[in-house]
Design a protein around this nucleic acid. Structure first.
Length: 127
DNA sequence: TTCATGACGAGGT
DNA sequence: AACCTCGCCATGA
């Protein structure tokens, strides 16, 4: 599989594109105080170039069971400067978990904070 | 179905 | 190191 696919028509009317569920399932496993990059999530789901889609999925996170704040860009920075509400919130939530930022808004010891799961369990989409 | 859009990423200047 | 350009994917009109 080289592309993230929405298995909508498979069985029943997918209220939500299953691709979101798959992404959220993975993000839900990120431990507190650790982070993953959009590209990492995409890669683990079998689509190395789908980082952008992951970010798109984060935008639609609803409910409080998905730690969306633990997903940052490849440079260890918080993305989406367009809005004014969530970026500051994301930073605060991460700081509350012990993640620190330097003067240039980058995560301190970024490489060390990265969570690299050996095995991922995202249900039917697992590889 | 084609086209534009966006919480991204890699490579070149 | 900062910035620009182009490529990628899933969505929705």
């Amino acid at each position: 599989m080289t592309r993230l696919r929405a298995t909508q028509g498979a069985d029943g009317p997918a209220q939500v594109p299953s691709i979101y569920e798959a992404i959220w399932a993975l993000v839900r496993q990120i431990p507190p105080g650790r982070v993953m990059t959009y590209g990492q999530v995409a890669t683990l789901l079998g689509s190395p170039r789908g980082a952008r889609a992951v970010g798109y999925a984060m935008f639609f996170v609803r409910g409080g069971d998905v730690p969306w704040h633990r997903v940052v860009n490849a440079r260890g920075m918080i993305s989406f400067g367009g809005e004014v509400d969530r970026p500051p919130l994301q930073r605060e939530m991460l700081q509350a978990e012990g993640v620190r930022f330097d003067d240039s808004h980058r995560i301190v010891e970024f490489e060390r904070c990265l969570w690299r799961p050996e095995r991922v369990e995202v249900g039917p989409l697992a590889m």
